[in-house]
């Protein structure tokens, strides 16, 4: 299925990406070429093939969950240290509720 500019706009919206007009034009062409290429997979009949859901699951290994023991987290101070706009122990962000 060919990718159109309106597909690109829709995908960008889903991915929370703003794109310039130039990027939209460029991505439409490039993504169309890549998607056409990956459709090569349709040459293969995979009807009875189970998907590889786990990467390199080692049958001999034990992936048991760790014990539920309380441990120290980062703490508020360290967790906020890289924040662009921390305020009184919180992450401050622009208005969440949009009008209209």
């Amino acid at each position: 299925m060919p990718i159109t500019k309106s597909d690109v706009e829709k995908i960008a919206q889903l991915a929370h990406l703003e794109l310039t007009e130039e990027e939209k034009e460029q991505f439409t062409v490039q993504l169309a070429a890549i998607v056409a290429y990956v459709e090569k997979l349709n040459e293969l009949d995979t009807t009875d093939v189970p998907p590889m859901a786990h990467a390199g699951r080692d049958e001999r290994a034990d992936y048991a969950q760790r014990d539920d023991i309380v441990s120290e987290g980062l703490g508020q101070d360290l967790a906020l240290r890289n924040a662009p706009d921390p305020a009184r122990g919180y992450f401050r962000v622009p208005k969440v509720i949009e009008e209209g």
């Binding site: 597909d7 990406l17 703003e18 993504l31 622009p94 969440v96 949009e98």
Partner: peptide
């Protein structure tokens, strides 16, 4: 940015380079 959504979009627009955007777009698709 005036709203949270606008902040997300513009941050990602300005912060990511072309190849990263391309792969995010392909993966989202």
């Amino acid at each position: 940015a005036r709203t949270l959504r606008e902040m997300y979009r513009r941050t990602r627009h300005e912060g990511f380079g072309a190849e990263v955007k391309r792969r995010i777009m392909l993966g989202t698709y």
